[in-house]
Amino acid sequence: MPEDVRYELDGHVGIVTIARPQVHNALRRKTYDELAELVQTSTARVLVITGEGRSFCSGDDVRELMNGGEENSAPRPAPRLTPAAGALLQTNIPVIAAVNGPAVGWGMEMALMADLRVAARRAKFGELFVKRGLCSDVAGIARLAQLVGRERAAELLFTGEVIDAERAERIGLVGRVVDDEQLMPAALQLARKIAANPPLAVAALKSGLREALDPDWSELGRWVSTRLGELFRTEDHREGVKSFLEKREPNYVGR
Score class of each variant (00 low, 15 high):
residue 123 A to R: 01
residue 124 K to H: 14
residue 125 F to T: 08
residue 125 F to Y: 11
residue 126 G to D: 01
residue 128 L to A: 08
residue 129 F to P: 00
residue 131 K to Y: 01
residue 131 K to W: 04
residue 132 R to D: 10
residue 133 G to D: 00
residue 135 C to Q: 11
residue 135 C to G: 08
residue 136 S to E: 07
residue 136 S to C: 10
residue 136 S to K: 02
residue 138 V to Q: 12
residue 139 A to R: 07
residue 139 A to I: 07
residue 141 I to Y: 12
residue 141 I to N: 14
residue 142 A to R: 13
residue 142 A to D: 14
residue 142 A to V: 08
residue 144 L to H: 02
residue 145 A to R: 13
residue 146 Q to S: 08
residue 147 L to M: 10
residue 147 L to K: 14
residue 147 L to N: 09
residue 148 V to T: 06
residue 148 V to Q: 01
residue 149 G to F: 01
residue 150 R to N: 04
residue 150 R to H: 08
residue 150 R to V: 10
residue 152 R to D: 07
residue 153 A to D: 03
residue 154 A to C: 09
residue 155 E to W: 13
residue 155 E to C: 06
residue 156 L to W: 00
residue 156 L to M: 06
residue 158 F to L: 12
residue 159 T to W: 02
residue 161 E to D: 10
residue 162 V to L: 00
residue 163 I to Y: 00
residue 164 D to W: 07
residue 166 E to I: 11
residue 166 E to N: 13
residue 167 R to A: 05
residue 167 R to I: 12
residue 167 R to M: 12
residue 168 A to L: 04
residue 168 A to P: 09
residue 170 R to H: 09
residue 171 I to V: 11
residue 171 I to S: 03
residue 172 G to T: 01
residue 173 L to P: 01
residue 174 V to P: 05
residue 175 G to W: 08
residue 178 V to S: 11
residue 178 V to L: 03
residue 178 V to W: 05
residue 179 D to K: 14
residue 179 D to C: 12
residue 179 D to R: 15
residue 180 D to V: 09
residue 180 D to M: 07
residue 181 E to Q: 14
residue 182 Q to R: 13
residue 187 A to M: 01
residue 189 Q to D: 15
residue 189 Q to L: 07
residue 189 Q to T: 06
residue 191 A to L: 01
residue 192 R to P: 01
residue 195 A to S: 02
residue 195 A to D: 05
residue 196 A to S: 10
residue 197 N to Q: 15
residue 198 P to Q: 03
residue 202 V to Y: 02
residue 204 A to D: 15
residue 206 K to D: 05
residue 207 S to I: 04
residue 207 S to G: 15
residue 207 S to E: 15
residue 208 G to D: 12
residue 208 G to S: 14
residue 209 L to C: 13
residue 210 R to S: 15
residue 210 R to G: 11
residue 211 E to Q: 13
residue 211 E to A: 13
residue 211 E to L: 15
residue 212 A to V: 08
residue 215 P to M: 11
residue 216 D to F: 06
residue 217 W to S: 14
residue 219 E to Y: 07
